[in-house]
């Protein structure tokens, strides 16, 4: 342990952030969780402690089941879709291509636009009219000879359609992550593999892809938490309709329409917990992995290496 004089200034420098996070994140989370454990089901009652009753009761509501199912469908389609598309785009661009800058700009720009702005277009595009009344994408599909469907108004797979605007918005970002990952693979490594007799495909299979695993994981985490909290997109495209209900929208309705703070807090807690279930292990894992590779002797600042080397080492271990 180093002397306090060396680390104290650093601690002081981050103190404002610690206080802010303490109040705004953990204070609010605590407030929320405490509220979720009361029976404050309207604005005026005091709210008695009821333990986890609200967390159990909510499973009796058909709407809750629906919104959980919707989230699962949305998450699977959105996360897989954005990962695959982002990966594909990065893969196609990896070796450099004419107009790469333009392509990158086109794929990235949806990230720049809010759904308050594009919701109106997506509503048009995903209009459910078919046949003679087809407009938007259905009209386009009609011209192209593709099958038409109800988009987000489809009773079973509506949420898969709802994932399209989200994929549109985030796959460019995933592309950028993967492209950075691809290009972070040192050429010498590829060359070495080729010398060892690997085919071009073998180079990808055994050298490049393993090194992309950390990038894939962080993309997965970022996409996953966006997906579990999704709100703006749904409200912008469909409003508060049951057919596209998700927990975040349900919570909004519970708090502001049903005037049921405890129920809203319960749903919020479930969202936080669902995010936490896969984020906390990831955070702990990544901090630990880093500690093992980056700082062999704890407390020392020495022996730290560049990120690509570090990733490589992680890969070799795993």
């Amino acid at each position: 342990m180093r002397r306090a004089r060396t680390w104290l200034p650093g601690l002081l420098l981050v103190t404002p952030s610690i206080v802010a996070i303490g109040v705004f994140v953990y204070g609010m989370l605590g407030w929320n969780f405490q509220l979720a454990m009361t029976d404050k089901h309207d604005q005026v009652s005091e709210g008695q402690f009821v333990g986890l009753q609200n967390f159990i009761d909510i499973w009796d509501q058909p709407r809750w089941h629906l919104s959980v199912n919707h989230t699962i469908v949305f998450t699977v389609v959105f996360v897989l879709g954005a990962l695959l598309l982002g990966w594909l785009l990065a893969f196609l661009m990896e070796k450099g291509i004419k107009g790469e800058g333009t392509f990158r700009a086109i794929y990235l720009f949806p990230m720049a636009i809010s759904f308050v702005a594009t919701g109106i277009v997506w509503r048009w595009l995903m209009n459910s009219g078919t046949g003679e009344r087809a407009v938007g994408l259905n009209r386009l599909f009609d011209w192209l000879g593709l099958p038409q469907w109800q988009w987000f108004r489809d009773q079973d797979w509506g949420m898969a359609a709802m994932a399209l605007p989200a994929i549109w918005q985030m796959s460019g970002y995933v592309m950028a992550l993967f492209l950075a990952g691809f290009r972070g693979v040192p050429e010498e490594l590829r060359e070495a593999a080729r010398v060892d007799g690997c085919t071009e495909w073998g180079v990808y299979r055994h050298v490049v892809l393993p090194m992309l695993r950390p990038v894939t994981l962080s993309a997965l985490i970022i996409l996953g938490h966006i997906s579990l909290k999704v709100f703006d997109l749904i409200v912008a495209v469909s409003g508060k309709q049951i057919i596209t209900d998700v927990p975040a929208v349900f919570m909004w309705v519970a708090v502001f329409d049903s005037n049921d703070p405890a129920k809203g807090a319960t749903i919020a807690s479930y969202i936080v917990v669902s995010v936490a279930i896969f984020v906390i292990p990831y955070l702990i894992w990544s901090v630990r992995a880093e500690r093992r590779t980056v700082r062999p002797e704890s407390g020392s600042l020495r022996g730290q290496r560049g990120p690509s080397e570090r990733d490589h080492e992680q890969e070799r271990r795993s």
Binding site: I242, I243, V253, S258
Partner: peptide, 17 residues
């Protein structure tokens, strides 16, 4: 009132499905 309306809208939404 508003909570009642929210509950009715919920039922109607579920019914549509």
């Amino acid at each position: 009132n508003q909570p009642w309306l929210a509950a009715i809208n919920e039922q109607v939404g579920l019914f549509i499905g």
